[in-house]
Amino acid sequence: MAETNSHIAEQGLRWTISDIVAMTWRGLVRYIRLPQLLVFSTIQPILFLLLFTYVFGGAIQTTQDHYINFLVPGILVQIVIFGSVQTGVGLAEDLSKGLIDRLRSLPMARSAVLMGRTLADLVRNLFVMVLMIAVALIIGFRPSGSIGAIVAAVFLIASFGFAFSWVSAAIGLSVKNVETAQVAGFIWVFPLVFASSIFVPIETMPSWLEAFAKISPITVTVNAVRALMLGTPLGDNLWQSLVWIIGILIDFSMLAVWRYRKI
């Protein structure tokens, strides 16, 4: 009996994984089939990179001799946060088109719908990040951290984006409408992104804003990424960032799953 049960559990797990793989593939195909989606998710951050490097950069005093070295770790985090908005938009689209109803009537793992979407967006984020780093290197980004530390930084950013995808998923499943998901997804992200250490050292902000920016998950993550990429001391940033990531993941995956069940 115990053996049969473990066999069934094993098969269940295999099916769950196969469902997640199928849904992830389906989520990625849209980027291959809709190249403009991928183009826009890379052009916009590249424009930001150029804008801040050449237009604003000269006016921003940082700890780095060259602003671009300060900027790139931050802008990579910004990309995955903006990218995560797509998770909720995609889910809202599936909902409004009736696709989720079809999926919910199938004998598939229910978790696979959300996992597939968030994993697909994770893969897309990694791709965009690699492309961005290449562009940054061309225009003068010179990281002094070790290769291992840079790779670790990329994975830290990807995990951060993955956690934000679940926030976005919870929003998308709550608003159930593509346009609203788009707006609702960005509204809370914008102030968080700018009130952080992504573009400027937070010490230059008024003290009330600095206090807010200091504890922001974005600031600690950007600081950790910056330290890893530039080979400066990590301080408390890495573990604080990991605590945020795990906390956001647990809370918002539960919230998103709950919203999914309530549809």
Binding site: V29, K97, G98, L99, D101, S105
Partner: peptide, 15 residues
């Protein structure tokens, strides 16, 4: 054991 075709054509347009 069931199949459902709901009120909207539930297909993925990008496939």
């Amino acid at each position: 054991r069931i199949g459902l075709a709901g009120q909207f054509a539930a297909i993925d347009e990008n496939l």
